[in-house]
Design a binder for these strands. Sequence first.
RNA 1: CGGGGCGUAGCGCAGCCUGGUUAGCGCGCAGCGUUCGGGACGCUGAGGUCGGAGGUUCAAAUCCUCUCGCCCCGACCA
Length: 574
Amino acid sequence: MRISKLFGKTQREVPAEANTISHQLLLKTGMIHQVAAGVYSYLPLAWRVLKKIENIIRDEMDKAGGQELMMPALQPLELWQETGRDLAFGKSLFTFSDRRDRKLALGPTHEEVIAKMATSNVQSYRDLPLLVYHIQTKFRDEPRPRAGLLRVREFTMKDLYSLDADEEGLDQSYNKMLQAYQNIYARCGLPALLVEADSGAIGGKDSHEFMVITESGEDEIIYCPDCKYAANTDKAQGIKSKVENGEPLPIEEVETPGMATIEQVANFLRVPQSHTLKAVFYFADRKLVFAVIRGDIEVNEVKLKNILRCIELRLATEAEVVEAGIIAGSASPIGITGIKIIADDSITSGANFVAGANKPDTHFRNVNYPRDFRVDLVAKIARARAGEGCPKCGGKLSSTHGIEVGHIFKLGTFISQKLGAFFIDPNGVSHPIVMGSYGIGLGRLLAAIIEHSHDDKGIIWPISVAPYHIYLCPLYLENPQVTATAENLYSELEAQGLEVLFDDREESPGVKFNDADLLGIPIRVIISPRTLETNSVEIKWRSVKESELVPLEGIAARLKELVGAGLSRLSNSV
RNA sequence: CGGGGCGUAGCGCAGCCUGGUUAGCGCGCAGCGUUCGGGACGCUGAGGUCGGAGGUUCAAAUCCUCUCGCCCCGACCA
């Protein structure tokens, strides 16, 4: 490809509001163009990268025994109502009506469609197991799209569904996919960390995410440096320290004028926040719920939502709390009735806590569970934090941020039961198909590669996904020998099947070097009067500082060798 | 949904508070010339419904109302 003809120009400046690296570089290279909030066009360079990622994914899916098919983006809303997931997705589901006033949805995922299809294509245990997948556009009306391609409303996703007869089969399918995913990231030159994840209210026993560790990641990961434990903070279970506060003492009322927050109360009474209990009020599917947790720990709403098995969970407003007859600032479970009370197990981690007295400006000292109050349920609803104990080895947990580049779920039979996807076992007994679901967002993967592989000059593409292998860069095109050599080499390389981006522009060396670095093509080949003096060209890898002069004689074969070696290095790393 | 901000040439921005010639600047773009191994320079030139609608005024990019879009933080997000 000649740069002079390439659709998509590099920019010198990018909008100030683009503040993640991948977003900036994608704009600066001219690879993407925003059409609406969270909706982008991919220009030719980006599209080539996306296609390469797609082919790597397809290859690994096929190797794992996957069958590719294609399901529509357009789906009847009815299908979603049958599983009830229209409510679970809520406003993230794009819906509209057709000319006959039938409700339609743009598919955010395809479990329903595949399960429905299974009803007519899977009837016997002999039909199982199955791994079927497609690479299709997904639509999700995200509350807040952001960071370029990292969170968008329309994106391409590879989603594979496993259909099995039983849990053992599901485990096998899951492990196959887990391995295939690791191969994909390795081939994309991306170190992806496997972390335990929350599978949501829909259930299923296991779920893992693949995370690329980077500052700009939206997800917080809790991990143990001593063992392999790593989990999304929505899932992570840290072991909380015990609070040493003596033997239970008699409960005692104290005045705490004007003290409403935990911080204020703790300071006023001169106790650490870990010696207090706090009350947090939520609305779970329009019902008030009272959460109790140790004062120094936060409630994790995902965990609470899962415990409550509710669809919508939000903090109650102060007005709603007051209206329910609760004394905000001095609320506690002591003596409260008529409200569902969920407690974090941290309330059992010590003794003699300070808690609200349900009386204005008053708290209790020496509150002890279960002596002084009852709750409906004690559960683990705390947000895990760095510094807590590792649940696997007891070591000290750390935290970091990451980009979710893949998510795999053991779904179980929830969807197949709702949609009537059953099969007959060898004994003639009917069972719901056991499902798993495995997704990778291609655009996000592309952005994650940039987040992980760049420097202050631009992108550094791993050769397996680079839009082109070679940046052919002649300097001083007005020199006929340079032009002739470059044109000949360009034809020869293309004839060899190498992917060449030919910088045929009459620009100064500085401009060309900067664009070459910005675009991040793995191998840069310079032809100039200087190199031609010794009948050679200069070869430089984007990822290394030094360049070398290589004789012009046999250069095409030499480059082909280099590209081949680079490619096989990545594919052998799986 | 709450908070903050922005919309002026292909891109990045100034002008707005305090209304007043022909709406500026840089980059990019076109032509000519001189340069050029890490984003050169000179000259000439093209390019604008100032997001949209309504209003105030002799006069609106500028003030007012409404509206649309976009960004950032948070909430939220299988």
